[in-house]
Simulated assay, not measured.
Amino acid sequence: MKQFKLTILFLFINFGGLAIGSWLMNNGPLTEWYTNLNQAPWTPPGWVFGVAWTLIMICFSIYLGKLFIEDNSQKLKLVFLFQFILNVSWNYIFFNQHLVLFGLITIVLLTSLLFYYFFKLSNKTNNYKFLLVPYMIWLCIATSLNLYVLIHN
């Protein structure tokens, strides 16, 4: 029951973060600035982002529910807070402020943090850590898209 309650809590937090990030980017992907950029040939169509983030946040919330049962330390809470801030702020930095290099730094930090979750924080979660794989893959793709925009614009 504790796992279920924590998962629900993290679903609210994580989807709330997506909503805040979406609001902060101010229609970023539809703006003239973004549509006129040289974008990577592997940039997915817009609908893929919604599907991907929905799956990612469901998996991540289940993982976090398990992780916080096993380790409810202050360190873990700070790591989660840092991850949350990086995830939400990237939208604002990249799409709203057009700070492509700073966006790349932000997403590299976020990606590194997810790998840290996977390799260092997941000792007690057994196979739950594999719920991070969609998030890790997506962040690698997103990092490559951000890098492409930086190099080719």
Rank of each mutant, 00 (worst) to 15 (best):
V48D: 05
G46W: 02
P45V: 11
F15R: 01
W47P: 10
N153G: 11
L6D: 03
G50E: 04
Q39R: 15
D71H: 09
E32H: 10
K77W: 14
N126M: 09
D71S: 10
H98T: 09
L145F: 08
L55K: 04
Y92E: 04
T111K: 00
Q97D: 11
K124A: 15
T43Y: 15
E32M: 12
L99K: 14
I62P: 08
Y92S: 09
L109T: 00
Y117G: 03
A142P: 06
N72Y: 11
F49I: 03
W90K: 03
D71K: 09
K124F: 08
L24M: 05
M57Q: 13
F115S: 06
Y92C: 10
Y117H: 02
N14V: 01
F10V: 01
F68C: 12
M57K: 10
K66M: 12
I69A: 05
Y92P: 07
V88R: 02
P29W: 03
F80L: 13
L78H: 09
N26F: 10
A52D: 04
F49A: 03
N26W: 09
F102E: 11
N96R: 14
I62W: 04
F4R: 14
Q39N: 14
A52W: 05
L113P: 02
S144W: 07
G16V: 00
P134V: 03
A19C: 06
F95R: 01
A40P: 09
L150G: 14
L24A: 03
Y63N: 09
N91K: 04
I20T: 04
K124G: 14
N146R: 06
F119Y: 10
I85C: 07
N38A: 14
G21L: 01
I85Y: 05
P41A: 09
N123E: 13
L110Q: 02
F95C: 02
T125H: 06
Q97Y: 11
S112G: 15
W47R: 08
L147P: 09
K129Y: 05
L6W: 00
M1Q: 09
L30M: 12
L6M: 01
N36Y: 02
L37P: 11
E32T: 15
F95K: 01
C59I: 07
L76T: 13
H98Y: 08
N96F: 10
P44F: 03
Q39V: 13
